[in-house]
Design a protein around this nucleic acid. Structure first.
Lengths: 387, 387
DNA sequence: CGCTCTTAGTAAGGGAACTTAACTTAAGCA
DNA sequence: TGCTTAAGTTAAGTTCCCTTACTAAGAGCG
């Protein structure tokens, strides 16, 4: 027999009833401020119940008056809105080149931020830098440290909560060490969750960027490596072992034994450009700039990159059928150059053609995804801990 | 801002509280019969509440006494269990060669079944055959027709509820005609849902087969075509437009322009066997039998099939990271021959290696998936319509 | 046989949270 | 100032859950 979800969930008593209704009202208010009468009409609760629930929320500091609304005729309504200062969340992006930290309120508004170059040589120094920068960001804001409720870190690799360390972090030496994040957690003094950077970028693009409102979309992160984040029904989809979206391992070419990651990452663009005749010190960025200027070898390299990306996207489309594919990562800022080639090649390759778009958040996608994730958790925590 | 899930859900009043608790108790009883006292202990509800809820459920015919249990010491307990005869569900598998219909109770026990060869020449005749066979199955059982609560049909292609017809049903002429399923629905007199066959096979394998308990697994259906069903957290994952798992469209080989479907389906095995020197009238089945007997060309064809499947699986693993890959479909009964090759090749191809297993349900996977899906819906309906 | 121990199940009382219905408050307008 | 209309509150009543205390029933034992 099926069984599966045999775990009996919590019983519903009156407290949970009340709590559930308060939560529903709070979520409704996040969309737009509303009066008690309006909430009653919209939610189906009675006016007295709404009044009482709103009083509780206001007493707990989760909701506050937000002006008035005078209808055509009749008494003016008192509008309520969530109080975004009821808690704060830290988003942290640990990248190869940059460490970025942002502090946001419960509306997702960033109230303080600091980006520092990542010059740490060891993972321990890196951890110290993260903690120090986070403390600076909080100190540089008007936020009381105790009001910072949750933090989320984005990092390459897959964090395994069971052993509390990162796996597959190939490009960061020592980063897989045990105890690293426990130390950060402790010195930070804030609950800290660790997520894969591509997944967070996808979440960020869903919360604030071009993926907004999409029921199923993927974020392809092209840079030093190749990764993908999946957001399904608003939540990250991580697979059975956290390795969903590790498209660097897609089978690519049975002639040459190189990986798709090698074939599509930023270095590959440089390699192709050289093979096509470009010379000098090249970076992916300079190749894209040359292509923009019309240099033939560069254009060819970019075209090949686009074709290979289309190959990747077609594989993803066949398995997942996403509504939208967002191109981002280090190469993302040149996505406009790639889009047309990707779309044209896709048309040749497969009848399954998701929309393809460039990242709207650019370099900030991971950071904002961390912010969005931490904020979501912070909302839960603040609600759960109300008086 | 994020917004997204801005839809306010239903308010929680006392009726919903009661209903929710009754539902929870019912689901708990599906795992194993239990006494009131035991339910109270396990669910956290009080004994009087459990008594009262159980009385309602019993009055509604959803639950019945199921013997007694005498503890070590103390009064004997009255056990309760769900009444599986509170409703019935129809599962229907419309395949190329066979039409299969099964009637199951709310426990998922098949109480009547009929398989007929699919000789219909037109889609209209096919629809008539489906309805007639379904009526025969119900008539041939002890079940009152009014107790049949829901039906689910499995068919190739993607059913689009918006236009109420099937798309991409390449191998079935006329099957994409509008109104076809509306007609069946009407003549059947039972609510009818239409699902993709590979998805249902995956659901079936999750409910009754080798995928039981897996949080994320895929069912690869190899036969006339090539398809895949995905079950995530117990629910089918269909993608944005219902085309998730259409792995026949995976990019395969940039030298030859054929599709992966052509390269992996049953016909491909025959083609390869011929190319390797086999002669006579060959079917996929006969090639597998010859391979089992040790004939070199057949062994070679089977090996190539396994290698190509491994290629497919590695792509799926890179995107989805499933816990388990189940091989099924027409070629499924020979999966044991393929497993070793698939596993060995996977080891060469990728570090992401999901478990690979043969289907446990064989030809019945689609039918049982339809039964499981219809039963799930029937449980909901019966519960919602209790007095 | 009846006493005691133990667990199952019920009855009665009380409290929390919701609803309905009626009332009060406040704003605009004649 | 009084009328109309909509917002918001008060009061009464309902539903459903919980706690406490009781009764019911089986098993071992003197």
């Amino acid at each position: 027999m099926t069984s599966s979800e045999s775990g009996v969930d919590q019983p519903w008593n009156q407290q949970r009833l009340r709590s559930s209704n308060e939560r529903m009202l709070l979520e409704r208010l996040r969309a737009t401020p509303a009066s008690r009468a309006q909430l009653a009409r919209e939610t189906g609760l009675s006016k007295p119940t709404v009044s009482s629930a709103l009083a509780s929320l206001e007493a707990a500091g989760l909701v506050r008056e937000a002006g008035h609304h005078t209808p055509e005729r009749g008494r003016a309504a008192v509008l309520y809105a969530p109080d975004p200062s009821a808690g704060y969340a830290l988003g942290i992006d640990i990248g190869r080149a940059w460490l970025r930290v942002a502090l946001a309120d419960l509306d997702g508004t960033v109230v303080a931020r600091k980006d520092v170059r990542n010059r740490a040589r060891t993972s321990g120094a890196m951890a110290d830098l993260v903690v120090a920068t986070a403390h600076q960001v909080v100190a540089g804001s008007d936020v009381v440290p105790a009001d910072v409720v949750h933090a989320v870190v984005g990092t390459p690799g897959v964090y395994d909560p069971a052993v509390r360390r990162v796996r597959y972090a190939l490009h960061l030496p020592g980063w897989g060490r045990a105890g690293l994040f426990d130390r950060m957690r402790e010195e930070l003094g804030v609950p800290l969750a660790v997520h894969n950077d591509a997944n967070l970028a996808a979440v960020g693009e869903h919360a604030f960027g071009v993926g907004a409102g999409s029921r199923l979309f993927v974020y392809v992160m092209i840079g030093t490596g190749l990764g993908m984040g999946i957001v399904a029904d608003g939540r990250p989809f991580t697979g059975a072992s956290g390795a969903a979206g590790e498209i660097g391992f897609l089978p690519w070419n049975d002639r040459a034994p190189d990986t798709l990651e090698d074939a599509v990452s930023a270095e590959a663009v440089v390699r192709t450009a050289r093979a096509l005749g470009m010379t000098g010190t090249l970076t992916a960025k300079s190749v894209f700039e040359a292509a923009r200027a019309g240099e033939a070898a560069a254009v060819g390299a970019v075209r090949q990159e686009g074709e290979r990306l289309a190959h990747t996207v077609s594989a993803v489309a066949a398995v997942l059928d996403p509504e939208l594919v967002v191109l981002g990562g280090g190469v993302g800022h040149s996505a406009d150059l790639l889009l047309q080639t990707v779309r044209d090649t896709l048309r040749r390759l497969t009848p399954l053609r998701p929309k393809v778009a460039a990242s709207a958040l650019g370099e900030d996608a991971v950071l904002l995804g961390a912010v969005a994730t931490a904020m979501g958790r912070a909302r839960d925590v603040v609600f759960a801990q109300r008086a």
